[in-house]
Simulated assay, not measured.
Amino acid sequence: MKKLAILGSTGSIGHSTLSICESFPDRYQVVSLAAGKNVEDAFAQCLRWRPKVISLASEALATNLLARLKAEGISDIEVVHGTAGSVYAATLPDVNFVVSAIVGVAGLEATYAAVCAGKTIGLANKECLVAAGELIIAAAKQHGAALLPIDSEHNAVHQCMRGGTPKEVKQIWLTASGGPFRNTPLADFEHISPQQALKHPTWVMGQRITIDSATMMNKGFEVIEACRLFNLPARQVRTTIHPQSTVHSLVEFVDGSILAQISVTDMRLPILYALAYPERVAVTAKEALSFDLTMLSQLDFSQPDLTRFPCLRIAYEAAEAGGNACIALNATDEIAVAAFLEGRIPFLGIPRTIEAVLQLTSGNPPASILDVLDADLAARDTAREVIARQYAGARR
């Protein structure tokens, strides 16, 4: 029986993880949850799963939830809040598997604490490895914590790498749908609206990750994450446009063999793989995770155009630089994407803002999580200044 802490329980990964717990009650037990700001979902999850601990984003939200639980006669669930609450939920002695799915650097401290506590981590928060990968990988080695990727691409690489040893890997290939603009004339990029950018051709995701997919920054983050997870330099982590999204990643070995992982586009599959590892758990018709082979009738692959998608080029450069460059990349992207969604900068203002901030970024690599958080805040401030200076009065 694996006993779970689910950080980000009210998000899409959290809901998918709980769906797996529903299907396999003899294998997985929910011990603690971190639910962010969604009190309604948090309350429903408490009624269904009866965790020992649940954490909310703020004291006011925690007080609200606690009152609702008491009104239902439930007094055996400990309600905590804030970063300290998430850390507490992630490091409970009963927990032996932590699903890290809090979006952004908000989940960094809890994930790092869980690693230092020797927990096995199912990692769905790519910002953790982008911003603090060197620290997290070092802590995992020191404390014997396993890091199992839940992102579909890295999960696919993890599966393919079981076909050889690390020294036999020549390179890995991360596939990308290309987003909604892979065939859009470059001259039209200046006029792309938020509504157009939010129409992803394959996946249904949150707003930031959908925009990151449209700019291919999401793939850039995945390159950095892959470098750290699989101990590879950026030149051995390749990207390819694959609009069908049926091949999730490929691993090329030194003898010329290439292994690919193919599955339905359903996040429950990589979550189940991580939860069950090193086993594979049989699914039934109820889970509906089987793959229709007729979907392989056409498989297209092409090289990404770095002129069309400068964010991917910038991410490769940050991967080579490491340290503060990766922190600034993630922080600035979040600020720039929000500004684009609010109509304050154009679509191409996203990579321009990121590049401007990276040119202003320097300093020693972070030596602690506090250093990471300080560098993150500094990069956000710089990004806001760049946007205010370059795009004043640009709201559309």
Rank of each mutant, 00 (worst) to 15 (best):
residue 5 A to Y: 01
residue 12 S to M: 02
residue 13 I to Q: 03
residue 14 G to R: 00
residue 14 G to D: 04
residue 18 L to K: 01
residue 19 S to P: 14
residue 21 C to E: 00
residue 26 D to L: 15
residue 33 L to P: 02
residue 34 A to K: 12
residue 46 C to M: 00
residue 54 I to V: 11
residue 60 A to C: 02
residue 61 L to V: 09
residue 62 A to Q: 00
residue 64 N to T: 09
residue 68 R to V: 03
residue 71 A to E: 12
residue 83 T to V: 08
residue 83 T to M: 08
residue 85 G to W: 07
residue 95 V to G: 12
residue 96 N to P: 03
residue 98 V to W: 08
residue 100 S to T: 07
residue 108 L to V: 02
residue 110 A to P: 01
residue 111 T to C: 13
residue 114 A to V: 06
residue 120 T to V: 15
residue 122 G to W: 07
residue 127 E to F: 07
residue 128 C to N: 14
residue 128 C to R: 08
residue 132 A to N: 07
residue 144 G to K: 05
residue 146 A to V: 13
residue 151 D to T: 04
residue 153 E to I: 00
residue 153 E to S: 04
residue 154 H to K: 05
residue 161 M to L: 10
residue 161 M to G: 03
residue 164 G to N: 08
residue 169 V to Y: 04
residue 170 K to P: 02
residue 174 L to K: 05
residue 174 L to Q: 13
residue 179 G to K: 01
residue 183 N to P: 14
residue 186 L to V: 15
residue 189 F to Q: 11
residue 194 P to W: 03
residue 195 Q to W: 11
residue 205 M to L: 11
residue 213 S to H: 00
residue 218 N to H: 10
residue 221 F to P: 06
residue 225 E to Y: 06
residue 231 N to Y: 12
residue 239 T to A: 09
residue 241 I to Q: 04
residue 241 I to A: 07
residue 242 H to M: 05
residue 245 S to K: 00
residue 246 T to Y: 12
residue 250 L to K: 13
residue 252 E to V: 00
residue 257 S to C: 09
residue 260 A to L: 12
residue 260 A to G: 11
residue 262 I to P: 13
residue 265 T to P: 12
residue 289 L to Y: 05
residue 295 M to S: 15
residue 304 P to M: 10
residue 310 P to G: 14
residue 316 Y to E: 09
residue 319 A to V: 05
residue 326 C to Q: 10
residue 327 I to N: 11
residue 329 L to H: 14
residue 337 V to A: 01
residue 342 E to W: 07
residue 343 G to C: 04
residue 346 P to F: 03
residue 351 P to V: 04
residue 365 P to W: 06
residue 366 P to V: 02
residue 369 I to G: 11
residue 370 L to C: 15
residue 370 L to Y: 15
residue 375 A to P: 05
residue 380 R to T: 10
residue 386 V to D: 01
residue 387 I to V: 10
residue 393 G to L: 05
